[in-house]
Nucleic acid binder design. Sequence first.
DNA 1: ACCAGTACTCGGTGCTACTAAGTACCGACG
DNA 2: CGTCGGTACTTAGTAGCACCGAGTACTGGT
Lengths: 108, 108
Amino acid sequence: MDDLTEMLKGTLEGCVLEIIGSEETYGYAITRRLNDLGFTDVVEGTVYTILLRLEKKGLVQVTKRPSGVGPPRKFYTLNAAGRGELATFWAKWEYVTSRIEKLREGGR
Amino acid sequence: MDDLTEMLKGTLEGCVLEIIGSEETYGYAITRRLNDLGFTDVVEGTVYTILLRLEKKGLVQVTKRPSGVGPPRKFYTLNAAGRGELATFWAKWEYVTSRIEKLREGGR
DNA sequence: ACCAGTACTCGGTGCTACTAAGTACCGACG
DNA sequence: CGTCGGTACTTAGTAGCACCGAGTACTGGT
């Protein structure tokens, strides 16, 4: 599937939030996870900018730990604000997808 | 539902395409339709910029007709390229939504 | 010594929805 | 007759987001 970038705007950040919410993890692994999921074109740079943004917004807690196979990793977990943001994201997601499905089915 | 704007990026244009595809219509009416659907914050300016973009991309055919209740209306219909673009949009939409639902359910 | 894989940073770009201000046409009401 | 609200379109500028590209740096294997 080619060039999903415009459609991912506003949702990719939510996806990263969801991944962090489900387990403590780090940028490189998040990228691999997104790639495995089917978002094959998402590259490291994109994920790292999202992570820095989440950090700036105060939605995550960061812990640096040595890796053994490379440079130290920055592990992320959601804090209370992050969990709130994640819930808001899913609420918006449900709202938008339901309306668009309605539109698609010709509903008025 | 507040501030869906980031999530609508890349999908609002597809919605407009779908509306035009289902019946010949014009900007003001498209805005009302989107508002009725639940996208209450979408305003005329946004829709008009999308319509001009669609025109520039050569996806629509435009016909100007007098209105009787105001200035003349610009009626839009999809041409072959527009129908192709609409099909591509729905294909991307299905792809993205299915992957995100999978992520949400913790699938790997 | 070099390279591939791992891991993060950061300045800059392009696309999109949105803002805001403007133009213009019409009917109704005082 | 002038004004106002509803209809209808245009356009210059803004902000946010995913992406690009180049750079830094740590590790183990050849």
